[in-house]
Amino acid sequence: MLALMIDRARVDHVARLARLELTDEESERMVRELSSILEHIERITNLDLADVPPTSHVVDLTNVLRPDEPRPCLPREAALAQAPDATEDGFRVPSPSA
């Protein structure tokens, strides 16, 4: 089944998508663990669910809206206070294009 498709290449691909650096050992363990978890989980893929609607929200709410009224912003020092690397006016990051 689908769980059989969990191999090292897939683990590496998913880790990249999730921006997670895994050691070689972690990746190998992940192959085994994900396979065994998914094998258990996949029993639900055998259920007949053709006419069942999906549930994405359990609360029976719609249209929770906020009036378009300004609220105070954070002072810039507070916004930047927790940043691992900040200049006086912003968050510094390695350039995406570099």
Binding site: L2, V14, M30, L34, L49, P54, T55
Partner: peptide, 25 residues
């Protein structure tokens, strides 16, 4: 890893979509 895989292209319906239906049941 599990969640990223379950949402990734080609697997959404089989995993996340199915799970949401089971949630309904």
């Amino acid at each position: 890893m599990l969640g990223t895989y379950a949402l990734s292209s080609g697997y959404y319906d089989a995993y996340y979509g199915t799970a949401q239906k089971v949630r309904t049941l």
